[in-house]
């Protein structure tokens, strides 16, 4: 694998990471936050696999990536369950409404 491909993939990891950080800062919808979190974790998993390819340890990086994907899926399930419960109790998916609800 030539170095230019590795550089392209490293740039892709950085871009996905940056887009996800920006999205986390500007998003207030609870379900949208979970979507943005997914993009962030995909950047991390892609970075893991690219690093494994660089070091010649692609199988080790695959093993860790599988664990990250499973953990990420569980995070999404629990986060969506919380979002739906919040929607039914508060009536909105706004993350700021949760803190106001606690003050009330």
């Amino acid at each position: 694998m030539n170095p230019s491909s590795i550089n392209i993939l490293a740039a892709c990891v950085l871009a996905l990471f940056g887009v996800a950080i920006y999205g986390l800062l500007v998003t207030r919808n609870l379900i949208k936050i979970m979507i943005v979190l997914q993009i962030l974790v995909k950047a991390a998993v892609l970075g893991l696999v690219v690093a494994g390819k660089m070091n010649g340890q692609i199988n080790l990086s695959q093993s860790i990536a599988v664990t990250v994907i499973v953990a990420d899926t569980v995070v999404v399930i629990v986060g969506l369950a919380l979002a739906i419960q919040a929607r039914q109790v508060i009536g909105t998916l706004d993350a700021d409404a949760l803190s106001k609800f606690r003050e009330d």
């Binding site: 694998m1 993939l9 696999v49 690219v50 390819k53 692609i58 695959q62 990536a65 599988v66």
Partner: peptide
Amino acid sequence: YLLGAHEV
């Protein structure tokens, strides 16, 4: 897949 990480 193109990187050779077929399982992931």
